[in-house]
Every structure is written in structure tokens, then in C-alpha cells.
Design a protein around this nucleic acid. Structure first.
Length: 260
DNA sequence: ATGGTTGTAACACAA
């Protein structure tokens, strides 16, 4: 009997502001691997020493003000890849690394602002590039975990109000969901859905309109596991608690467990 | 439907 490997994803919306929350949550949840998004820190300012004190090594790719991703792990991360190979992008949205026998791809998917905008077009182009890359990545690394802030709610169960969050709305539009489906078609499975058929469980709540208090959320923070890992995936969930803390991120951490 | 809030930074922009 071995302890499962716990792998989590959390959009912290500024690691500078949220470091105390991250430390508290690492202590309580004891994940083995964590993908962070929206660190909003240049690499020189990344708090790797503080995280080492908590027992985690860090690899990271950041920039000032926007974006920024990192992978924390208890054991060393190897073969670190920043960005999507062959896709020019100034925005730091992607970091991948091998931890133990698992390849971890951490994505901060483009938000897209509104359907029909330039940013929406960039989101769809970006997702197409991710799809091509993951197809190749799976050949090299069959044991693949793709996690992150996907900025796409997979289906109507993953939104508080499907009438508002419909086929024409950002984060739920047909083209965005089609792009996500093409990742599923590579043999990647939404780990949460492997264990839960229920709806109404969310990972993100807008800061506005008291959305968290009213549980007006979306499930947009996902962990996809490859076919080779599907049978090992023993559980998945979302920790709502950090969203109740003072001055929280607008996202809650999502996690999966892999029997190793 | 528009505006609501947060973070960074700088009085706008992205989410």
C-alpha cells in the first residue's frame, strides 16, 4: 500500500499577494505536485526560497503584471519546457516538466475576453497550437497530466446558470468547447468527471456581485489525465476553503490523486 | 445589458 500522488492546480492571481495562502494550503493539503497560474512575477522575484522551506522545489516562467506559471514539486522537476514549441508567444502561459514517471503540462489558457474579439481569436489559435503539441507530447510521454486554468467550462453542469453561460458566451462558447473536446479526443480525460457526474461544483467565482457567497461559479480549472494514467486516477476534487479566506484568489485549487 | 471587484501599476488594462 503506497500513498497516492496528489497533483493540484491553482490560479493564485498574484503569487506576491497569495504566498501566505499558498503556504497555508500546501501545509494542509500536502500535494506532491502543484501547477500555479497567474503568478504575475518576474523570475527574479519568484519566492523559491520560501517554497523550499515548505518542502517544494520550483520551476517557473513569469513576467511582470500578467500571466506567469510555475510547477512546484516535492521531488525534482526535470526536462523543463517553457512555452509551446514552435508557437511564438510573449505571454508566459505554459510550463511543462517531468516529475517521477509523470509528465506534467501546466497551462494558463488565454481568457479570450469576449466572443469575436482579437483576444478570442488568439485563444482559439493558442488552443490549436496546444492540441498539436500535446499530440506529440503524448507520444513521447504516455503518462501525461495536463492541468491548469483552462478558461473553458466543459459543459452545462460546470456553470451556475447555463442560460447566461451559453453557446455564445466567453468560457462556454461552442468553439471553445470544441477545442477542449479535441484535447479529449487525444485520449485525455477530465479527471474530475471520471469520479463525479454531478454538476454545481465550481473552481472560479468572479470577485464581483458577491458571486462566491451566492455560489455563482464555473468549473474552469481542470486536470486531464492520459489514457495510460486513467486507471491510476483514484480521486479528484476542488478545495473551496481557500476561496473563503481573507483576500482570496478568485480561483480555488483543484486536485487529483494518482495511485503510484 | 452594463457594471460590478481585484491586481498591478500608475490614473488603464486584464480578468
Amino acid at each position: 500500500m503506497t500513498t497516492p500522488t496528489k497533483i493540484a492546480s491553482w490560479n493564485v492571481n498574484s503569487l506576491n499577494v497569495r504566498l501566505p495562502h499558498l503556504q497555508q494550503w500546501l501545509d494542509a493539503a500536502a500535494p506532491d505536485i502543484v501547477g500555479l497560474q497567474e503568478t504575475k512575477l518576474e523570475d527574479a522575484r519568484f519566492p523559491d526560497a520560501a517554497l523550499a522551506e515548505a518542502g517544494y522545489r520550483s520551476v517557473f516562467a513569469g513576467q511582470k503584471t500578467y500571466n506567469g506559471v510555475a510547477i512546484l514539486s516535492r521531488t525534482p522537476a526535470e526536462a523543463v519546457q517553457v512555452g509551446i514549441p514552435g508557437f511564438e508567444d510573449e505571454q508566459k502561459r505554459v510550463i511543462a516538466a517531468t516529475v517521477g514517471d509523470v509528465r506534467v503540462v501546466n497551462l494558463y489558457v488565454v481568457n479570450g475576453q469576449d466572443v469575436g474579439t482579437d483576444k478570442y481569436a488568439y485563444k482559439l489559435r493558442w488552443l490549436e497550437a496546444v492540441q498539436g503539441w500535446l499530440m506529440r507530447e503524448l507520444l513521447a510521454h504516455p503518462k501525461l497530466v495536463v492541468l491548469g486554468d483552462f478558461n473553458i467550462a466543459p459543459d452545462a453542469r460546470d456553470v451556475h446558470d447555463p442560460a447566461v453561460w451559453n453557446d455564445d458566451h466567453i468560457l462556454t462558447s461552442t468553439a471553445e468547447r470544441d477545442a477542449l473536446r479535441r484535447l479529449y479526443d487525444l485520449g485525455l480525460h477530465d479527471a474530475y468527471r471520471l469520479h463525479h457526474e454531478d454538476g454545481g461544483v465550481f473552481s472560479w467565482w468572479d470577485y464581483r456581485q458577491a458571486a462566491f457567497r451566492r455560489d455563482m461559479g464555473l468549473r474552469i480549472d481542470l486536470t486531464l489525465v492520459s489514457e495510460a494514467l486513467r486507471g491510476d486516477c483514484s480521486g479528484a476534487g476542488i478545495d473551496r476553503e481557500p476561496r473563503t479566506w481573507e483576500r482570496p484568489s478568485d480561483h480555488a485549487p483543484a486536485w487529483v490523486e494518482l495511485a503510484r
